[in-house]
Amino acid sequence: LKKVVALYDYMPMNANDLQLRKGDEYFILEESNLPWWRARDKNGQEGYIPSNYVTEAE
């Protein structure tokens, strides 16, 4: 899975979204639905995130 790091905080707009915290790492599960990607956080929560809020992890 592709790993990304959040560049900004993101508060979910609806139940399908995943909250982002700046500096945290996330795994990308699906990239087909631009600009929204399906992601999983370190706690196993899954949801959609804005792809322009993250960058690929080193």
Rank of each mutant, 00 (worst) to 15 (best):
residue 1 L to P: 08
residue 1 L to R: 07
residue 1 L to Q: 07
residue 1 L to M: 11
residue 1 L to Y: 12
residue 1 L to C: 10
residue 1 L to F: 12
residue 1 L to A: 07
residue 1 L to G: 08
residue 2 K to D: 02
residue 2 K to I: 07
residue 2 K to W: 07
residue 2 K to L: 07
residue 2 K to R: 14
residue 2 K to C: 06
residue 2 K to F: 09
residue 3 K to M: 10
residue 3 K to I: 13
residue 3 K to V: 13
residue 3 K to C: 08
residue 3 K to S: 06
residue 3 K to Y: 06
residue 4 V to C: 07
residue 4 V to Y: 09
residue 4 V to P: 00
residue 4 V to F: 08
residue 4 V to H: 03
residue 5 V to P: 00
residue 5 V to T: 10
residue 5 V to N: 04
residue 5 V to H: 05
residue 5 V to I: 14
residue 5 V to D: 01
residue 5 V to L: 08
residue 5 V to G: 01
residue 5 V to E: 04
residue 5 V to Q: 05
residue 6 A to T: 01
residue 6 A to C: 04
residue 6 A to P: 00
residue 6 A to K: 00
residue 6 A to L: 01
residue 6 A to Y: 01
residue 6 A to M: 01
residue 7 L to F: 04
residue 7 L to K: 06
residue 7 L to Q: 05
residue 7 L to C: 08
residue 7 L to G: 02
residue 8 Y to I: 07
residue 8 Y to H: 09
residue 9 D to K: 02
residue 9 D to W: 03
residue 9 D to Y: 03
residue 9 D to N: 10
residue 9 D to P: 04
residue 9 D to S: 06
residue 10 Y to S: 03
residue 10 Y to P: 00
residue 10 Y to H: 05
residue 11 M to E: 14
residue 11 M to A: 13
residue 11 M to G: 05
residue 11 M to H: 12
residue 11 M to Y: 14
residue 11 M to I: 14
residue 12 P to V: 04
residue 12 P to L: 02
residue 12 P to F: 02
residue 12 P to D: 02
residue 12 P to I: 04
residue 13 M to V: 14
residue 13 M to F: 09
residue 13 M to L: 14
residue 13 M to S: 11
residue 13 M to H: 11
residue 13 M to G: 09
residue 14 N to Q: 10
residue 14 N to V: 06
residue 14 N to D: 10
residue 14 N to C: 15
residue 14 N to W: 10
residue 14 N to H: 14
residue 14 N to A: 11
residue 15 A to H: 12
residue 15 A to P: 14
residue 15 A to Q: 12
residue 15 A to V: 12
residue 15 A to S: 12
residue 15 A to N: 11
residue 15 A to G: 10
residue 15 A to C: 12
residue 15 A to M: 11
residue 16 N to C: 15
residue 16 N to K: 10
residue 16 N to V: 08
residue 16 N to M: 11
residue 16 N to D: 13
residue 16 N to H: 13
residue 17 D to C: 15
residue 17 D to V: 09
residue 17 D to T: 09
residue 17 D to S: 10
residue 17 D to Y: 15
residue 17 D to W: 15
residue 17 D to I: 09
residue 17 D to K: 09
residue 17 D to N: 11
residue 18 L to K: 00
residue 18 L to I: 05
residue 18 L to V: 03
residue 18 L to W: 02
residue 18 L to G: 00
residue 18 L to N: 00
residue 18 L to A: 01
residue 18 L to S: 00
residue 19 Q to V: 08
residue 19 Q to F: 08
residue 19 Q to N: 07
residue 19 Q to A: 14
residue 19 Q to K: 09
residue 19 Q to H: 09
residue 19 Q to C: 10
residue 19 Q to E: 13
residue 19 Q to M: 12
residue 19 Q to P: 13
residue 20 L to R: 00
residue 20 L to I: 05
residue 20 L to H: 00
residue 21 R to C: 11
residue 21 R to Y: 13
residue 21 R to A: 07
residue 21 R to F: 13
residue 22 K to E: 07
residue 22 K to N: 04
residue 22 K to Y: 05
residue 22 K to T: 07
residue 22 K to P: 03
residue 22 K to V: 08
residue 22 K to C: 08
residue 22 K to A: 13
residue 22 K to G: 04
residue 23 G to Y: 05
residue 23 G to A: 03
residue 23 G to W: 05
residue 23 G to V: 01
residue 23 G to K: 03
residue 24 D to S: 08
residue 24 D to G: 07
residue 24 D to K: 06
residue 24 D to R: 07
residue 24 D to V: 08
residue 24 D to Q: 13
residue 24 D to N: 08
residue 25 E to H: 14
residue 25 E to N: 08
residue 25 E to G: 05
residue 25 E to T: 15
residue 25 E to V: 15
residue 25 E to P: 08
residue 26 Y to A: 02
residue 26 Y to T: 00
residue 26 Y to D: 00
residue 26 Y to C: 02
residue 26 Y to H: 00
residue 26 Y to F: 05
residue 26 Y to V: 05
residue 27 F to H: 07
residue 27 F to E: 10
residue 27 F to D: 07
residue 27 F to C: 08
residue 27 F to Q: 07
residue 27 F to L: 11
residue 27 F to S: 06
residue 27 F to Y: 14
residue 27 F to V: 10
residue 28 I to Y: 01
residue 28 I to V: 09
residue 28 I to R: 02
residue 28 I to G: 00
residue 28 I to H: 00
residue 29 L to S: 03
residue 29 L to G: 02
residue 29 L to P: 02
residue 29 L to K: 03
residue 29 L to E: 03
residue 29 L to F: 06
residue 29 L to C: 05
residue 29 L to R: 03
residue 29 L to Q: 03
residue 29 L to M: 08
residue 29 L to D: 02
residue 30 E to D: 15
residue 30 E to W: 11
residue 30 E to T: 07
residue 30 E to M: 07
residue 30 E to V: 07
residue 30 E to S: 10
residue 30 E to H: 08
residue 31 E to L: 09
residue 31 E to V: 11
residue 31 E to I: 11
residue 31 E to D: 13
residue 31 E to M: 13
residue 31 E to F: 12
residue 31 E to K: 10
residue 31 E to R: 09
residue 31 E to T: 11
residue 31 E to Q: 12
residue 32 S to Q: 08
residue 32 S to C: 12
residue 32 S to I: 08
residue 32 S to E: 08
residue 32 S to H: 08
residue 32 S to F: 09
residue 33 N to W: 08
residue 33 N to Q: 11
residue 33 N to T: 14
residue 33 N to Y: 10
residue 33 N to P: 14
residue 33 N to S: 13
residue 34 L to G: 15
residue 34 L to Q: 13
residue 34 L to P: 14
residue 34 L to I: 08
residue 35 P to K: 15
residue 35 P to N: 15
residue 35 P to R: 15
residue 35 P to D: 15
residue 35 P to I: 15
residue 35 P to C: 15
residue 35 P to F: 15
residue 36 W to A: 06
residue 36 W to Q: 09
residue 37 W to N: 03
residue 37 W to T: 07
residue 37 W to L: 13
residue 37 W to A: 06
residue 38 R to W: 15
residue 38 R to F: 15
residue 38 R to L: 15
residue 38 R to G: 03
residue 38 R to T: 07
residue 38 R to D: 02
residue 38 R to I: 09
residue 38 R to S: 05
residue 39 A to S: 03
residue 39 A to Y: 01
residue 39 A to E: 01
residue 39 A to M: 04
residue 39 A to K: 01
residue 40 R to Q: 07
residue 40 R to V: 10
residue 40 R to M: 13
residue 40 R to G: 03
residue 40 R to W: 06
residue 41 D to A: 08
residue 41 D to W: 01
residue 41 D to L: 02
residue 41 D to K: 02
residue 41 D to N: 11
residue 41 D to H: 03
residue 41 D to Q: 02
residue 42 K to D: 05
residue 42 K to I: 10
residue 42 K to A: 11
residue 42 K to P: 05
residue 42 K to R: 11
residue 42 K to S: 10
residue 42 K to N: 09
residue 42 K to V: 10
residue 42 K to F: 08
residue 42 K to T: 10
residue 43 N to T: 10
residue 43 N to L: 10
residue 43 N to P: 02
residue 43 N to H: 13
residue 43 N to R: 09
residue 43 N to S: 12
residue 43 N to I: 07
residue 44 G to E: 04
residue 44 G to A: 04
residue 44 G to T: 02
residue 44 G to W: 04
residue 44 G to K: 04
residue 44 G to I: 01
residue 44 G to D: 05
residue 44 G to P: 00
residue 45 Q to M: 13
residue 45 Q to V: 13
residue 45 Q to H: 13
residue 45 Q to C: 13
residue 45 Q to L: 12
residue 45 Q to T: 12
residue 45 Q to R: 14
residue 45 Q to D: 10
residue 46 E to W: 07
residue 46 E to C: 06
residue 46 E to A: 05
residue 46 E to S: 06
residue 46 E to I: 10
residue 46 E to Y: 05
residue 46 E to H: 04
residue 47 G to Y: 02
residue 47 G to T: 01
residue 47 G to I: 02
residue 47 G to A: 01
residue 47 G to F: 03
residue 47 G to S: 01
residue 47 G to H: 01
residue 47 G to W: 02
residue 48 Y to V: 06
residue 48 Y to G: 03
residue 49 I to Q: 00
residue 49 I to T: 01
residue 49 I to P: 00
residue 49 I to G: 01
residue 49 I to V: 08
residue 49 I to N: 01
residue 49 I to M: 04
residue 49 I to K: 00
residue 49 I to L: 07
residue 50 P to G: 03
residue 50 P to I: 06
residue 50 P to W: 09
residue 50 P to E: 03
residue 50 P to K: 06
residue 50 P to N: 12
residue 50 P to H: 08
residue 51 S to G: 07
residue 51 S to W: 14
residue 51 S to F: 15
residue 51 S to H: 11
residue 51 S to L: 06
residue 51 S to K: 13
residue 51 S to T: 07
residue 51 S to I: 08
residue 51 S to V: 10
residue 51 S to D: 03
residue 52 N to K: 11
residue 52 N to H: 14
residue 52 N to R: 11
residue 52 N to C: 15
residue 53 Y to I: 04
residue 53 Y to Q: 05
residue 53 Y to D: 02
residue 53 Y to R: 05
residue 53 Y to W: 07
residue 53 Y to L: 10
residue 54 V to W: 02
residue 54 V to M: 04
residue 54 V to A: 03
residue 54 V to N: 01
residue 55 T to Y: 10
residue 55 T to A: 13
residue 55 T to H: 10
residue 55 T to I: 14
residue 55 T to N: 07
residue 55 T to K: 13
residue 56 E to A: 13
residue 56 E to C: 11
residue 56 E to V: 13
residue 56 E to D: 13
residue 57 A to F: 12
residue 57 A to C: 12
residue 57 A to K: 12
residue 58 E to C: 13
